Simulated scan of single mutants.
Amino acid sequence: MKNNLAIIALESFHEQGKKVNEILCKWRNADNFMISCKCPRFSSGEAKGIISESIRDKDLYIMVDVCNSSLRYKMDGEYNRMSPDDHYQDLKRIIAACNGKASRITVVMPFLYESRQHRKTGRESLDCAIMLKELEFMGVNSIVTFDAHDPRMSNVLPLMGLENVSPALQFTQGLLTEYEDIQIDSDHLMFIAPDEGATERVVFLASVYGVNIGMFYKRRDYANIIDGVNPIIAHDFCGGDLDGMDAIVVDDMIASGGSIVDVCRQIKERGARRIFIFSTFGLFTNGFAKLDKAYEEGLFDRIFTTNLVYQKKELLEKEYYYSINMNRYIAAIIDTLNKHEPMQPLVKPEKRIRETIRNYKSV
């Protein structure tokens, strides 16, 4: 088969991109698949996208982390921090620089841009859908994302591929590697959804593990909007007895950390033995003070998040933090798509999770 694979990693995902490239080169006995790019800016803050070599007839994979808050650019003599909007604009610039010459373009966007604005109520924008239609218009053939806030966003693109990948396998491997005394049965373990939006993830994991679920629902103050959302008044629990059980709270992201701390407190008050948190994206937008205090109070035992988004150095030093490395899985996804092989075993890896659990129980 003609080797037409090419990878572009924007600055926001450059370090992970290099590692993904190294993995693919090792698997395929190749020297390099990476094509360098840059988005230089004028003093006004305007920019342009540049790629270093031809991508004609290439199966191209462009990787971007729209949540990377560590990058800055100079505008009018001062430095601005790059926002998700800036990262998304740079992605479009690089796609435009391809000039339609690639045979196929796949965007690997682990955190789906504007996925929190996935539905409209009243007179407001529907940003995630607009983004998806823009990429379709620009000639993108497929999008790979992880644990989308609302998987129904794929309905925006009925004739285009949107692979919504679950990192449930990697979370399982991480937990069962770190802890040798997890009893995987309905008498000792429960998966818990911190809100109704997380229910689908929790049902999937609980079904594979063969345990029960619990769910919190958020009571909100719909008369007010603070920081773009209706503030949460309380979390109410629906579920069975938690006394003496291990609980795993599963969500797509941790932003400020306030909700997850409140949920953990209520679980602990119901007698849970240990509390583990699975969150695909650890944004920690308000720092770590709330989580540090909650950990000191014994409200949770471990937080597992992935390296699919930028990880602050301070986070990596936390005693309670476990980083799930997804570089090899991204490489497997690119390898599978490039070979036109089925994606289902990677999107929802049920069989491998069951196998991991069987092996854990047999030891």
Rank of each mutant, 00 (worst) to 15 (best):
V211F: 00
D181V: 05
I233V: 05
E178P: 11
I182H: 00
L169A: 06
R201G: 08
V211L: 07
Y209G: 00
I192C: 02
Q170A: 09
A193K: 06
S154I: 15
A223M: 11
N224W: 12
T172G: 14
D236H: 04
D187Q: 07
H188G: 04
R201I: 02
D227F: 11
I232T: 12
L205R: 04
G161A: 08
V211G: 01
D181E: 05
V203K: 09
V156Q: 06
A234Q: 14
M153Y: 14
F171A: 09
A198Y: 03
S154R: 06
K218P: 13
F191C: 00
P194A: 10
G228N: 04
P151L: 12
V202H: 00
P167G: 05
A193P: 09
E163S: 11
N224P: 11
L189Q: 02
V203A: 13
T177M: 13
N164K: 12
R220C: 11
M153C: 07
F216N: 05
R220P: 01
E178R: 08
N212M: 12
P231R: 02
V229H: 10
E180P: 04
Y222K: 15
A168S: 15
D147N: 08
G210T: 07
I233T: 11
N212Q: 15
Q183L: 03
I184K: 00
Y179V: 11
D150S: 08
F216E: 12
E178S: 14
G197K: 04
G214A: 03
V202S: 05
I225H: 06
A234S: 14
T199G: 14
Q170S: 12
F171W: 02
N212G: 08
E163R: 10
S154N: 06
Y222G: 14
V165F: 06
M215Y: 01
V203L: 14
L169F: 05
T172K: 13
N230E: 14
E163N: 10
S186N: 08
N164C: 03
F216R: 13
D221E: 07
F204Y: 11
S186T: 02
L162K: 10
T177E: 13
T199I: 08
N230A: 12
D187P: 05
I233M: 15
T172A: 09
P151K: 14
Y209D: 01
L159K: 03
L162F: 04
G228H: 01
E200T: 15
T199W: 08
Y217I: 08
E200V: 12
Q170T: 05
R220I: 01
G210V: 00
I182E: 02
L169V: 09
V208G: 09
R220Q: 01
D185M: 03
V229G: 07
I232H: 13
L176C: 08
A193N: 05
V208T: 11
S154D: 13
A148V: 04
Q183R: 03
N224F: 14
V203I: 11
L169P: 03
D150Q: 07
L157I: 02
G161N: 15
R201N: 12
V203T: 15
G214E: 05
S207A: 13
